[in-house]
C-alpha cells in the first residue's frame, strides 16, 4: 500500500469503520451527557477534535522519549498528566487569544480530561506504531468520527425528547441507549470494509 492510500485508509477507518464511540466504546460519557442539544454537541465535538490532535502529537514525541529511556511502563501516568496539562493550557490560551471560541468551548474543556477517547487514542497510536503523520491523520479522523456520531445522535435525541409515547421507565437514558444501539448497528455496516 502506497503512503497516500494508507493515510486515506487510516482516516476513513477512524471515522467510519472503527468509529470511536459506536464501535470502540470510547468517549461514551460525553456521548450520553452532552447530546441533548445539537448546539452543545457541536461545541463538544470541536473541542474534542482540537484536543485529540494536539494530544496525539505531543504523546507521540513523548513516547519516543519513553522508548529511548526504556520506561514504557510509565506510559499511562505520563500520558494522562500531559493530557490534563494540555487541556488546562488550551483553556488558558483560548481565554487570552480568542474569547469568542473560549465562550463556545469553555464549559466542555475541563470535561475532556476524563474523556477516555483522548487517552485511548494516544494509547492506540502507540500500539499501532504509527508515524507522526499517520498519528495526526488518525487523530483527525477519530475526532471527526466522534463529531459525526455525537451530532447524529443529538439530532435524534432532540426529536425523541418531544415524543410523549415513550413508556415511563424508558424515558431518558434507557431510550437514549437503545437509540445508540440502533445507530451503532448502522455503523456495523462498515465493518470489515478496510483492513490495515
Amino acid at each position: 500500500m502506497s503512503g497516500a492510500t494508507r493515510l486515506f485508509f487510516i482516516f476513513l477507518s477512524a471515522i467510519l469503520v472503527n468509529n470511536f464511540v459506536l464501535s470502540r466504546f470510547l468517549g461514551i460519557c460525553p456521548f450520553l451527557g452532552v447530546s441533548k442539544k445539537v448546539d452543545t454537541a457541536l461545541g463538544m465535538s470541536i473541542a474534542v477534535t482540537f484536543v485529540m490532535v494536539f494530544a496525539s502529537i505531543i504523546t507521540w514525541f513523548l513516547n519516543v522519549i519513553l522508548v529511548a529511556l526504556n520506561i514504557q511502563f510509565l506510559q499511562t501516568i505520563v500520558f494522562i498528566l500531559i493530557i490534563a496539562t494540555l487541556v488546562q493550557f488550551v483553556e488558558i490560551f483560548l481565554k487570552k487569544t480568542s474569547p469568542a471560541l473560549y465562550d463556545a468551548l469553555g464549559i466542555f474543556l475541563p470535561l475532556i480530561t476524563t474523556n477516555c477517547a483522548i487517552l485511548g487514542l494516544a494509547l492506540l497510536n502507540v500500539q499501532n506504531e504509527f508515524t507522526l503523520l499517520e498519528t495526526i491523520i488518525n487523530a483527525l479522523g477519530a475526532g471527526l468520527g466522534f463529531a459525526l456520531a455525537l451530532i447524529i445522535f443529538a439530532s435524534i435525541r432532540e426529536k425523541l425528547e418531544l415524543n410523549n409515547d415513550i413508556p415511563g421507565p424508558f424515558k431518558g437514558i434507557p431510550s437514549a441507549l437503545i437509540t445508540a444501539g440502533i445507530l451503532s448497528m448502522s455503523f456495523m455496516g462498515f465493518q470489515g470494509m478496510i483492513t490495515l
Binding site: L22, F170, A176, L177, I178, A180, S184, M188
Partner: peptide, 10 residues
C-alpha cells in the same frame, strides 16, 4: 457493539 447498547438500555 449494538447489543451492548441495547442490553444496557433494557
Amino acid at each position: 457493539p449494538p447489543g451492548a447498547f441495547i442490553a444496557l438500555g433494557m
